[in-house]
């Protein structure tokens, strides 16, 4: 049911990625944007776990099957949904730029993931930090703060996104898949030192996505 024609002859890599973060930060909208290029205003909250699969033709010789597990954010569900952390290759931890608390809680989510799953060699799975809803005014989280936070807590990278305006959705996921690919092929050193900032970096005077 998932396999499209062009994928059948190619070697395939399967990556399982979990999407976590506080309720209403936009996980489901992000997945929907990434999968279907759509944004719905009348979406429903997630009860339990939703699943999505995307097949990427990564190169002429490589296909990537990306499983996205969109996990309910309410704390009381985490005890049950943690089962889905098992065997995941990557993780997206999301917060809402207009909700400081959701940013603070990303640390709790990160620790939760690190305590529940690791790569075969024992190292933590690659975690990407996404600052969603960057299209909205009234931010509560400062870029410098995120920058310091992501380094300190060993995320592979962070970016601002907007599922609503389709900003950095595709690019961020490509970034994560690339990290997972490099890890898989063993030619990547995943120390955070190997990841540097691109572009202009944080510019407190002019937010990358401020409105």
């Amino acid at each position: 049911m998932y396999v499209s024609e062009e994928t059948t002859t190619m070697p395939e890599k399967l990556f399982k990625v979990i999407m976590i973060g506080d309720p209403t930060v936009g996980k489901t909208s992000f997945v929907q944007r990434y999968m279907l290029k759509t944004y719905k205003k009348d979406y429903k909250g997630t009860v339990g776990v939703d699943f999505a699969l995307k097949i990427l033709k990564w190169s002429d010789t490589q296909t990537v099957k990306l499983q996205l597990w969109d996990i309910a954010g309410q704390e009381r569900f985490t005890w049950m949904t943690r089962v889905y952390y098992k065997d995941s290759h990557g993780c997206v931890i999301m917060f809402d730029l207009t909700n400081k608390n959701s940013f603070i809680n990303t640390l709790k989510w990160k620790r939760d993931v690190d305590s529940k799953c690791s790569l075969p060699d024992g190292s933590p799975i690659p975690c990407m930090l996404l600052a969603n809803k960057c299209d909205l005014p009234h931010r509560q989280v400062d870029q410098m703060e995120i920058e310091a936070f992501y380094k300190e807590h060993n995320f592979i990278g962070w970016t601002e996104t907007s599922a609503k305006e389709d900003l950095m959705v595709e690019d961020s996921m490509r970034f994560l898949v690339d990290v997972m690919m490099r890890q898989e092929t063993g030619n990547a050193n995943l120390d955070s030192d190997s990841l540097r900032l691109t572009g202009p970096g944080p510019q407190p005077a002019r937010g990358g996505c401020s409105c």
Partner: peptide, 29 residues
Amino acid sequence: PVPRNDKPVLHGDVKTPSSNICETESSKY
């Protein structure tokens, strides 16, 4: 909705493959 032109940047340096990525999907969505 507030219109905006500037695009956020990805913080972390990983090269993405230059080839096109074509996608198919099958999901709840």
